[in-house]
Design a protein around this nucleic acid. Structure first.
Lengths: 248, 248
DNA sequence: GCTTAACTTGACGGACCGTCACAATCTGAC
DNA sequence: GTCAGATTGTGACGGTCCGTCAAGTTAAGC
């Protein structure tokens, strides 16, 4: 029946959510090496075979976890749309959202590199891979949209088709690269230049500003107090759920 | 005595080099999942126990491989020192060297993410981890040195202690993040904005220029033809060994 | 209540890592 | 030349973890 299969479906989804929540907890407490399918099975109370009804394999589970995390990032990104600010200021807010996400969901960085390896990523099911990519694309498009709007409004000089795309790619790369490096540093003083602030995310802010200045995106950093806006958003806990650590 | 132990040591080092070369070949031909200790043992003709005389564990082998690759990058970086050019132009040449490395040693990107995970990186032996970090630091310091020299020469405005370090970190992040994203894209059209050039490395060049412009590093991009210099270096095959693909 | 379909289980096979007791080889003194 | 002792090499083995599947259990429909 409809109601019967409906109930089944809901139960299934609820169980999947439980499993993902548990996986997240194990990941946080025991690290990546502590997260095994056997353990997830025994701690969840379900048999291993049941796990494989939800996840094609371990990489698929990782992919699902990553998806879960990045949904939160997307929500933070979407929140920026409600801010009445110049495009460049909103772009800065997107950067702050990305920072908040990194701080609020440290488990994300623990497992992200796994799927950065093509051979492992391709082991996950197509649906999950596409779902994850869809989220990432959505975030990317928020950034892209802001830059395009600025270009259209004449605040970002130069032809849109040769300026917008590289700029966005640059910002995104900056963010990704930064987190990769920071992730190393926290574990074993990796290849970061000496003197990097304790919250490297805060260190990223001025660099991004310079990049945008380099593109001539108005208002330039000396024409608008982006720094104050940044601290104001933090003080007001605009990204509170994820970025509670931002104030420290 | 000395000559005997000398010979032994040399034989050992030669064997290690053979093993690493073989590992690289397997990695290239079969991908990461094809590279197992058993396989390396059987293909090399040595027993598995012998491998473990050289490498503490698999992560240690990965670390050694990565080290081997990055030595080549360092050599490319060091070559830039011989160029008689403004500091900013030399910085650009360093970027080109990094691109060449990425193109010339694709296996590097295959395994790099593994050690980006702290829990796995820490499994490698301390010596190798430190050796790898030393190389990375060396490359970083080449970049840092160029920026510091520029700052000292008055070509890079602002106080050195608040400008140089973030700038270098930004460039490095840009490079790292770019490669991470590109690596994804090549496998499964990951989260890159549409229209990214086929050789994303070439796409990184103008972004870095804008960033340096944002810092006001003289000569600015409209005061010096960095683009021509770039193509000239490529044409002259200045980084030929690694960057043969650059011309395509 | 009974048949059939859907779901769940955990023992099992297999891949791979890393070890260790034993074997082979080398060294240097006599 | 030879032999004890040290060094180096071996591959079978134990352990961990992944993913499967035949057998068992529950629920649905009639």
């Amino acid at each position: 029946m409809t109601s019967a299969s409906q109930r089944r479906l809901e139960a299934r989804q609820a169980r999947e959510a439980t499993l993902l929540g548990l996986a997240q907890r194990i990941l946080l407490e025991e690290g990546y090496l502590g997260l095994t399918m056997d353990r997830l099975a025994s701690e969840s109370g379900y048999a291993k075979g049941t796990l494989y009804l939800h996840f094609k394999n371990k990489e698929d589970l990782i992919c699902a976890l990553l998806h879960q995390f990045q949904v939160h990032r997307m929500e933070l990104f979407d929140r920026v749309q409600g801010l009445e600010l110049p495009h460049r200021a909103r772009m800065m807010a997107l950067g702050l959202a990305a920072e908040s996400f990194v701080l609020g969901y440290p488990e994300n960085a623990r497992i992200e590199p796994i799927l950065k390896m093509a051979s492992l990523r391709n082991k996950a099911s197509l649906e999950r891979r596409e779902a994850l990519e869809a989220i990432e694309t959505h975030c990317m498009e928020r950034i892209l949209g802001e830059a395009q709007a600025a270009s259209l409004a004449g605040e970002l000089p130069g032809p849109a088709d040769t300026v917008v795309q590289p700029l966005v790619l640059g910002l995104w790369s900056l963010h990704v690269g930064f987190n990769v490096l920071h992730n190393l540093e926290s574990s074993c003083c990796g290849p970061l230049p000496p003197g990097t602030p304790r919250h490297p995310h805060a260190a990223m802010f001025p660099v991004a500003q310079r990049l945008l200045d380099g593109y001539g995106w108005r208002p330039l950093s000396h024409e608008f107090d982006y720094s104050s806006l940044r601290t104001k958003l933090i003080r007001e806990r605009f990204f509170a759920e994820a970025g509670a650590l931002l104030e420290s």
